[in-house]
């Protein structure tokens, strides 16, 4: 698991940042040197930079912008430190991208350096988002994400959800669609992600390793 770059990308609103934060925490428990780099310059709310301090307390370095992650900052620029981190091969880096192909475009400036390292690029999928609800649309989205980033997606994450209202049946329904995508694109389903309340109830036949999510960016009352 060491010294890899994990790129978290996907359609807008499919849960990339929540997954990226949880994934960085998981990597940290496996005792690696973890950096979470935020490339999201699209979203004004619910950004992983908002919880920088609590992640840093866990020993995860967070790099977003040079103004120390002020909440509500609406300036579309990246920290120059991100490139430095990518070139430093002893670090495990999680890159939290902005949504959609436009969010992935930001990756292009780093793609040559990324290709010099061992990388995984995970596409986060919520089939209950209207624009990634079927096999055809998901594959079209995948192609655009690859085209904009000039990188290859190496894994699919079934993160299909209705937040608190998600059922096991919802994830099984999503699994059928995502399995089909996996067969057609030859990209494996790496994880099936969900809240604790349902993740332990999934049937063994479901594709992907169950990945328990804790919501960090969404308040409990929301």
């Amino acid at each position: 698991m060491e010294n890899k770059i994990y790129i978290i990308c996907g359609h807008y609103g499919s849960g990339k940042s929540e997954f990226a934060v949880n994934f960085a925490k998981k990597l940290k428990t496996d005792n690696t040197n973890v950096v979470l780099a935020v490339l999201d310059i699209v979203n004004p709310y619910f950004r992983s930079r908002e919880i920088r301090l609590s992640l840093e307390n866990l020993g995860i370095d967070v790099i977003s912008d040079t103004l120390n992650s002020i909440k509500g900052l609406d300036m579309p620029y990246l920290s120059p430190a991100i490139k430095g981190q990518i070139m430093q091969k002893d670090r495990t880096i999680v890159l939290d991208c902005g949504g959609d192909p436009v969010g992935c475009r930001v990756l292009k400036q780093f793609s040559e350096d990324i290709k010099k390292r061992d990388y995984e690029m995970y596409m986060i999928l919520n089939v209950f988002r209207p624009e990634t609800s079927n096999v055809e649309d998901i594959i079209a989205m995948k192609n655009k994400l690859e085209q904009e980033s000039t990188l290859k997606i190496t894994g699919l994450i079934n993160n299909s959800n209705f937040i608190w209202q998600t059922t096991v049946e919802d994830l099984i329904y999503a699994d059928k669609i995502i399995k089909q995508v996996s067969i057609l694109t030859n990209i494996p389903v790496i994880y099936v992600a969900g809240l604790k309340s349902i993740i332990n109830k999934l049937p063994e036949s479901i594709n992907g390793t169950p990945f328990e999510l804790e919501l960090h960016l969404r308040s409990n009352w929301l």
Binding site: G13, N126, F128, R129, P130, S133, N161, F162, I163
Partner: peptide, 11 residues
């Protein structure tokens, strides 16, 4: 269209 997940602005 049944229940879907949407962002407020899109919805």
């Amino acid at each position: 269209m049944a229940k879907v997940m949407m962002k407020g602005n899109e919805a």
